[in-house]
Design a protein around this nucleic acid. Structure first.
Length: 174
DNA sequence: TAAGTGATCTCT
DNA sequence: GAGATCACTTAA
């Protein structure tokens, strides 16, 4: 069975992609073993374009966030607070900086703990979302009922001002 | 509730 | 080069 999620899914509207990623699988083929791990995506946040003051790209292109300006279907991984890797998936068209932050998979809560559980670090930055990298997305056979999804404001971005800090761009499975 | 932690960005 | 900032976690 191959339900691999590709760029056709990811290059759509960022908020839509974030919401629809819930309930699908983030898959990891570890280097330590041959087994494949499949994690249900339970918590995500959308960072949508240059207008979004909470998005790292809202102040323009820099070496760190350049991958967000590229095509959908690539990882944007960066170090936060000196100790946590945060995993994002680039979405939307070329030259439109947007990404979806993976905040939680399975029973793991918190973006830093998620990357630790998956063994994700800087080496995945700017890598394509596909099986060859050892980290990819698979569609679930069953779609999630709409009432299982909760939308809330994003976490830890109060600096973005009331307008953007209050946008309901965080999605969690109830 | 507070502090640890280091890359990145914005000034000099 | 120096200083501020930060999409977090853990231990009290």
């Amino acid at each position: 069975m191959n339900n691999e999620i590709g760029s056709a899914f990811l290059e759509r509207d960022t908020v839509t992609v974030a919401r629809e990623l819930l309930g699908n699988y983030l898959c990891r083929c570890g280097t330590a073993s041959d087994s494949t791990q499949r994690w249900v995506i339970t918590e995500v946040e959308a960072y949508d374009g240059p207008e979004d003051k909470a998005c790292h790209a809202h102040r323009g292109k820099t070496p760190r966030n350049a991958v967000m300006f590229g095509p959908a279907g690539f990882y944007y991984v960066y170090l936060c607070y000196g100790m946590h890797w945060l995993l994002n998936i680039v979405t939307g068209p070329v030259d439109y900086p947007a990404a979806v932050l993976i905040r939680g998979v399975g029973a793991v809560r918190g973006p830093g703990r998620t990357t630790k559980a998956l063994g994700v670090d800087k080496t995945f930055d700017q890598q394509p979302v596909c099986k060859q990298t050892g980290l990819w997305l698979e569609q679930s056979e069953r779609s999630l009922p709409a009432e299982a999804i909760q939308a809330t404001p994003r976490i830890g971005i109060d600096y973005a001002g009331p307008i953007w800090a209050r946008k309901p761009y965080r999605f969690v499975i109830d």
